[in-house]
Each structure stands twice: as C-alpha cells, then as structure tokens.
Amino acid sequence: MADTVGVKLEARGVTVHYRRRRSEDHFLAVDRADLEVGEGEFVCIVGPSGCGKTTFLNAVDGLLPLTGGSLVLDGRAITGPGPDRALVFQQPSLLPWRTVLGNVIYGVELRGAITGAEARERAQRHIELVGLKGFEDSFPSELSGGMQQRVNLARALTTDPEVLLLDEPFGALDAQTRETMQLELLRIWNQTRKTAIFITHDIVEAVYLADRVIVFTARPGRVKMSVPIGLPRPRDLRIKREPRFLEYELKIWESIREEVMRSNDMEERVA
C-alpha cells in the first residue's frame, strides 16, 4: 500500500530512551524502529504489553524526544506537537469542568487557527459525526465510558489533522461498546480517509480496522513484522468470522506469542 501511494510518515531507526525517576540509568523503550505509513493508510500496531508501542506513538505526536533516528512527516522532521497530527488518548482525558462542546473545541482553541463561531460550528459538526448530538451541554461525568471516548475522538478530529494517532482508545471499554466503537470509527474513517496509526493489544481489533498490521517485538520495541490486510472495505462485524480473517489473526497471534515467550525466557535468565 505504502508503495502505490505517497509516503506520509517515515520512521527511520527511531530510538527512545526513558530516564527512570530518581536514577541515572536510562532504559530503552523503542529500539531502531523502521516504519513507513502511506497517505490515507490505516495502520495498526500490536505487540506484547509494555513493548513501547505507546512510546512510539507519543514520539510521533512529538511529546517525547527521540534519542536516535528520525521521524519525517510530509518531508519535514517532527520536533514537537503540531497541527498536522492529533492524538486520541487511551484515557478519555477530558477536562471535567468543560461540557462536551467545550472539550471538543479545546484542541482548535489551543491551536488558535480558527476561533469563535467557525470553531463552534466545526466542533458541532464533529459532535454529530461521533453521534453525540444532544449531549453538547453535558459534563463528562454525566457520560458513559464509550461516550467519553467519542468526545476524545471528536476533539482530535475537530483539529482536522492529516494524521490521526490513536493510543488504544477502546482498550478500557467493555466488549460490546468496543465493537460498536470499532464500527463507528471505520464509518468515520471512511468519510475522512485520514492517515491513521492505531495502537492496540487486541489482534481482532487490529485486523478488523487496519490496511496493515505492524507487530512490535517485546521491549525494546522494534518492528518485527508487517502484515497487509487484504480484506475488502467497507467491513462489517461479520467479517471477523470469515476464514481469511481468522488466518490473519492466527498469523499475528503466533508472532506475538513468540515475542512473549522470548521475553519471558529473557526475564528468567536475568532472574
């Protein structure tokens, strides 16, 4: 996919170290990760827990400095957060003292590119897009977990980014709500066709959503495998039962399983 369309994001040898609190030593979270994401492509990154996939995404958003390698978006190096990217957080992370409308508008408000009635109109459009019409004046504490994540998503979409970054946005939801949200996300993505990088630990979710699934190794994370998903779109939920879907699922599952075993072995040897 990345070959036929223009390359949107290019990660070359991306390396991120974390400094532990109150100590001098650093630990390696992402180790020389290489990845290309095409224009309009939907990429899911899966991997064993703690493998650095969220760290990688935060680096793409510009929240974390790289300690090695480069991240290039549309030919420009990423040095910090920018209006061409928007992050949908793992936790809804809504401002509890703001209404739904106030939260959805928050991103564009900070960016300052559009203001006033225009910003409100755009926020309103995205509130409707995520199916929250009628809840504009509700406070986050009055919403369910699924609805809060819709606000989280609408806040990112309202800034009209070129690349949408999603950090396990449905991880904390119950199974039914998660499926609904997956369906909704694909519906919305079909309308906008924005480049998307979606982090998840749920293999079914990854195969269902993605054009391509990237498997990360155990920590330190690097790209282990890239699996193009040749399933037709639009996809409805029944596709999850088809043999072709299950084949992808199994292939990715085995790959992750291998990583989990390998990292367990390593830990045993250390211990």
């Binding site: 209006p83 957080f89 936790q91 992370s93 003292w97 900070l110």
Partner: peptide, 29 residues
C-alpha cells in the same frame, strides 16, 4: 493536576500560558 490533562494540552500545542489558564487555574479551583 491530572497529568493526563497536561499531556492533552501539550499534544494540542498549548503554550505555558494556555496550559496555566485552561488546566492549572480551573483544575485547582
């Protein structure tokens, strides 16, 4: 202050002043 909210503000490119006005001030009320 909720570290998640600070991260949200930073992600959307908040300046220090914006962070103070939109997160620190209302959050500490």
């Amino acid at each position: 202050l909720d570290a998640n909210l600070i991260k949200v503000a930073r992600s959307f490119g908040a300046t220090d002043l914006q962070l103070f006005r939109t997160i620190a001030l209302p959050g500490s009320v």
